[in-house]
Amino acid sequence: MTKVLTDTRSIRIKGRSFLALVLSPEPPLDAWLTRLDDLASRSAGFFLGRPVVLDVADLEIDRAQLKNLIDELGKRNVRIMGIEGGRPSLFEPGMPPAMKGGRPAPDIEIPAESTVEPVNAASAKAAASSAPMEPQAARAISSIVIREPVRSGQSVIFPEGDVTVVGSVASGAEIIAGGSVHIYGTLRGRALAGSVGNASARIFCRRLEAELLAIDGVYKTAEDMAPNLRGQAVQLWLEGDSIMAERLN
């Protein structure tokens, strides 16, 4: 029998890119899951409804262990949309699909012991992003300015560079920037700087009341923040694996 097409319009297929969170578990997995629980307990719902990709490229793992890991993450409401860096033999039907071709983000190595001067960071960043383009052109597209308050439930996602908000960021709102985050107002929600891998990104705000801060994947929740920084004008940056903060005057 031949099928007769009654509707001959072609199906439209579009491409769209999303910014996914990438989790890279480290052995021993039990300890890693414990640390994840700790993060989740201080920042409830952070993974809820977000695309999460599991990066297993650097992980010695077999199929049973991978299945178990996905189940453990599922129990924590972390739903994996894809697996990156896995050998074909790791996959079986029913698992999230293998993903590849994730766009590598600029990654800047910082000498472990040196403190990062703002000037150095800026020039490192310009150098990193200027590879294919003129530095000036790269600069011209690498920032956005939001001229009004960012309200609860809104998220500003700008992997390409810096985000500046002229106004406050409400509790329950978030700014996710590939570069630095500048808030000329009170930061009550979340700010994630260097979110696609940029350890020299910084967070600046006129008044710190944040729920969560992150630079290049290193987190600090409200509870971890020094109480004397609350309500102050603050800048935050990364040194190794710790977020450093100081008052701006």
């Binding site: 309200r151 609860s152 809104q154 509790s171 709102a173």
Partner: peptide, 16 residues
């Protein structure tokens, strides 16, 4: 109170 204020903030975003 805080929960009411936060919900209002959310609604203001929707109004825009």
């Amino acid at each position: 109170e805080v929960s009411s204020v936060r919900d209002s903030d959310r609604i203001i975003g929707l109004l825009d």
